[in-house]
Design a protein around this nucleic acid. Structure first.
Length: 537
RNA sequence: GGCCCAUUCGUCUAUUGGUUAGGACGUCAGGUUUUCAUCCUGGAAAGAGGGGUUCGAUUCCCCUAUGGGCUACCA
């Protein structure tokens, strides 16, 4: 018989009372990655959607894996994304402390309860004891599991007299394990995955309290979620397997479990598992996985994040939201407020996703127009760097002409420099092609043509080039030469706009520059040739 | 190996028994731009496979395959 009791928990109750409390609970073991930020985002969106509270809790139960600066990294990331917590580490609240490392006495209080009611027991097996067992099982093609089948033959309080137990507790270190009752089948309900049938025969007796006296994630997490009145647990799918065990814990304490929603994972493109913060070190990932830059401790290495790479936080958040969730509309550009308004757990996908950096870039481009002020500042910075002074209006005019050609702010200079400075570099392939007398002649003619054009306006320039010069069969070539001398590459906006903006004098000067460059090249070429001839003799 | 989850164009996804299976990114072609990009128009592109249930399955069930998670005194 399947027990259906956990399907109807406090979900409807909490929704009806507009009382939603969710938590984002990372461990300080390094920087957050894409998946972590998305989990935080969904928690935030869900909380805001229901007028609830978004809590930040630091799960620092593993001292060995602690990495300094993780916490500040997490908070800075949430700030950058504009999804700040209402409560928790760095934000205060009535359910403090929000560090699990500061809640030892709480966990001990509750573990005693479990010990007393027989749902937990002491275990004294050492690492080497267990490793030996694992090897034994492995040699027989089996997997060792500390469970109901063999717990009675292991070193624990279940098969000790009171005196033996007393002596052991006095003299050796111990862990506390949860005692799973075998032979039970029940239903657990996940808001995204639906009903899942659990058979306790497959569960193992998980450790609740480590030998250093610190609670494991499982215990701490369960107690904290209850005590902090968390209504919905939104976390990564890697926790789905532990959910049944967590439900059992709630049951043991006599508590109503919160609602669970296990979010799909973000997978690596190479099909080798979920993304992890370690991917960056191994250079496995083909896309950046950190939201903001991470300074690797004890080294000088700095790994740039999306912020440093030029992504707007709004674009980053928009893109992340759509990776595993979809409102079903055709439009995909959503502000944070729009995301909040349309967010729902029912629309979260069940399956894992592969990340596509090209789509991320497209999202960023879509946010360029909303960040024009920042583009202006970036361009101004480039000009200041070169001690160039231009009127505001002029700079804005250039930005308006260039904005469609870029994806990121930092691309503005390479697409607009030619309005401010003469090209310092010529595209080598095209330059090679035009290193000849014919081009020189054409360039000289161009100069004369420009000299004669008056007034020097876009309209007039176009007229002279196309109408008056219609006998010229090499129009295309001439245009290329003109653009090349002005820009240095065969790219950029309408060449007549460029000339008009540059003016007659500057345009002619740039043609002259190219002429002398070509002459120089031809000269050195012949010199080399002569040397070769001499060498031959 | 065991347990669990998933499976629609290359990628993100829509569709909750009846659709010419829709959109977005990317890609390709054409147009505009005498360049390049933008932009516009159009094209190619998907229900993992096999069984059921049904008048009818992408949708429900089972099996297989594939991918993923968990299987730690890590979270």
């Amino acid at each position: 018989m399947v027990n259906n009791i956990f399907r109807f928990n406090n979900y409807f109750y909490s929704m009806l009372n507009n009382f939603v409390r969710v938590r984002f609970a990372p461990s300080p073991t390094g920087p957050l990655h894409l998946g972590g930020v998305r989990t935080a985002l969904y928690n935030y969106l869900f909380a805001k959607k229901h007028g609830g509270t978004f809590i930040l809790r630091i799960e620092d139960t593993d001292q060995k894996r602690f990495i300094p600066n993780s916490e500040s990294y997490i908070i800075e990331t949430l700030k950058w994304c504009k999804i700040e917590p209402d409560e928790g580490v760095g934000y205060g609240g009535d359910y403090f402390p929000y560090y699990q490392s500061k809640r030892h006495n709480i966990y001990h209080y509750y573990i005693d309860k479990l010990l007393k009611n027989g749902d937990a027991y002491y275990a004294f097996d050492t690492d080497s004891d267990l490793n030996k067992k694992r090897k034994e099982y492995n040699d027989r093609g089996l997997t060792f599991s500390y469970n109901y089948q063999n717990r009675m033959s292991l070193k624990n309080s279940l098969n000790m007299t009171e005196k033996e137990l007393y002596d052991q507790l006095k003299h050796s270190s111990y862990v506390v394990r949860f005692k799973v009752k075998p032979g039970e089948k029940f239903n657990i309900y996940d808001l995204i995955h639906g009903n899942i049938i659990v058979n306790t025969d497959y569960l193992d007796d998980k450790i609740l309290l480590k030998s250093d006296g610190i609670a494991t994630y499982h215990l701490a997490n369960t107690i904290d979620d209850h005590l902090m009145k968390i209504t919905h647990v939104l976390r990564g799918e890697e926790w789905l397997s532990s959910m049944s065990f967590h439900i059992l814990l709630y049951k043991s304490f006599g508590w109503i479990p919160p609602n669970f929603a296990h979010l799909p994972l973000i997978l690596r493109k190479d099909g080798k598992g979920k993304i992890s913060k370690r991917n960056v070190d191994n250079k496995i990932s083909d896309f950046p996985i950190f939201p903001i830059q991470w300074k690797v401790p004890n080294t000088k290495t700095i790994i740039p994040g999306y912020r440093e790479l030029g992504y707007f936080p709004e674009a980053f958040v928009n893109m992340l939201a759509f990776l595993g969730w979809n409102p079903g509309t055709k439009n995909e550009i959503f502000s944070l407020q729009e995301l909040i308004n349309s967010f729902s757990l029912e629309k979260v996908t069940k399956s894992s996703a592969y990340f596509d950096i090209k789509k991320a870039n497209w999202f960023n481009k879509k946010y360029l127009n909303k960040n024009k002020e920042k583009i202006f500042l970036a361009l101004l910075k480039e000009l200041n760097k070169r001690s160039l002074k231009y009127k505001k209006n002029f700079i804005w005019k250039i930005i308006d002409m260039i904005i469609d050609r870029i994806n990121f702010i930092h691309e503005i200079w390479e697409h607009s420099f030619y309005f401010f400075i003469s090209p310092s570099y010529y595209d080598i392939n095209f330059f090679k092609k035009i290193c000849n007398e014919k081009s020189l002649l054409q360039l000289e003619r161009l100069k004369i043509l420009l000299t004669n054009i008056s007034p020097f306006t876009y309209k007039n320039l176009k007229y002279f080039f196309f109408k008056k010069q219609e006998t010229n069969k090499n129009k295309y070539e001439v245009m290329q030469l003109l653009r090349f001398s002005l820009v240095g590459i065969l790219k950029g906006i309408d060449v007549f706009i460029i000339i008009e903006i540059l003016g007659k004098k500057e345009s002619k000067q740039r043609i002259d520059n190219l002429i002398s460059k070509i002459k120089e090249k031809i000269r050195t070429f012949f010199l080399k040739k002569e040397h070769k001839n001499i060498d031959l003799h």
